[in-house]
Design a protein around this nucleic acid. Structure first.
Lengths: 226, 226
DNA sequence: TCATATTCTGACCGTTTGGTCAAGATGTTT
DNA sequence: AAACATCTTGACCAAACGGTCAGAATATGA
């Protein structure tokens, strides 16, 4: 069930197994860290013998690299919502929504990224220096233009971005702490919506860019049909 | 030089060595994670033979526990500035200042705490459920009172606290990423001050509690002489 | 059906790890 | 100075680890 839909064939087998291994590896790396993760653990979680992992990924580090690559790609895709926005309310608001959704749907990836950076980014240093730096400078430029256009108050764009990153990823990286403080209960749909609303409200008000009155449920630009 | 000031004696030796080992352990755990850290690495950083570590701390896990204990204690001390505050500007402002200072002076501790929580808090689960939960509920109560008194706009206190935690700790946990985006240069004193100012400005304005006009250097309540 | 290429896997190996221990060094007390 | 307690350390060990490999199993193409 679930698997048999895949069309058979050697290429399909390879793709299926790689995906399965990468998924298991992401979970194990997130829960145990690179040093604490073992190939045996990943193999067990993927339901494969350990030797089979080494058939698809030569070393533990190569597997880890692929996991981090995937995460960065997902992050970049989500970051695209920042573009083609007329002002901070749409741009930063949509970005916060996208990153909060990622924190909910993809917490393991966020944890792996956080651990990688915390440990000095031995694997992704080049990403930080090239792609991430360019993305950040581009977005900082947009924010400065919004400031010049009077669409928000003057704040350092970098610190603003750090606050958005930090806050949104916190709901993934510190999920365990948040759940514990929430009486051990995982967030409901409503609580996730409230979190997004509160985060957007504080940050958008904090930069003087709020379009609606305080603590209102945000109604998108498009008015609902009738 | 540096060491000889200590008064000699067996008790002093023990205290000195334990402190030295704990300091080294915090650094190594922060940089490599629990799984990636080795007793040999910690021993080398402390300048002691490995067997000596096991004389003072029976197991790697016991040493790790002590490191985490210390961090939590420092965190609790800093959190005290929240109390005896008349309103959000003083209370939350001082709390942000204190946590930003901690992120600057004690980044390793912050990283160890973050990694511990990210990995499911196997060691500090009881702290989360008792001390941290009580502290959080107490502070949430204070924030709700401030809201009732009209000193800030109504926001969920928990999400506000999460935002403060996330943002301030980001400057420690993601220091490497921030430095990379800062042309590889560590923050200067001025940049740290600017970070604190921006974070406080956005959050305090974001909860409708700012006392001064935007992007002003914060002048405490006490008017400067003449 | 047979030859070929790819996928799978149990058994194995050298290295590293946390931890032990006995014996020596150093400080303390009487 | 002798008896005692504490501290120090090189050598050692069992377990766990990442990685290898020969050969079995399976799919593909002629």
């Amino acid at each position: 069930m679930g698997k048999p839909l895949k069309l058979s064939g050697k290429a399909a087998i390879r793709e299926e197994n790689e995906r399965n291994i990468l998924r298991a590896a992401e979970l194990v790396f997130a829960e145990a860290g690179f040093g604490g993760a073992t190939m045996q653990l990943i193999a067990d979680m993927a339901g494969l013998p350990k030797a089979n992992l080494h058939y698809y990924f030569p070393t533990k580090e190569a597997l880890y690299r692929r996991v981090v690559d995937n995460i960065f790609q997902i992050w970049l895709d989500a970051a695209a919502v920042f573009d083609d926005a007329e002002g901070p309310v749409e741009g930063i608001g949509a970005y916060i929504d996208a990153k909060m959704d990622l924190s909910r749907s993809h917490p393991a990836g966020s944890k792996v990224w956080a651990a990688e950076v915390m440990h000095g980014a031995p694997v992704i240093q080049d990403y930080l220096e090239t792609t991430l730096r360019e993305w950040t400078e581009g977005r900082a430029h947009v924010i400065r233009r919004w400031i010049a256009e009077g669409k928000m108050k003057p704040v350092d764009p970098h610190h603003l971005l750090y606050m958005v990153w930090a806050t949104t990823q916190h709901y993934a990286d510190f999920r365990h702490q948040i759940v514990t403080l929430n009486s051990g209960q995982a967030f409901t749909d409503e609580q996730w919506e409230a979190a997004k609303r509160t985060v957007k409200s504080i940050i958008l008000d904090g930069i003087g860019a709020s379009s609606t009155s305080l603590s209102q449920k945000p109604e998108p630009k498009i008015t609902p049909l009738r």
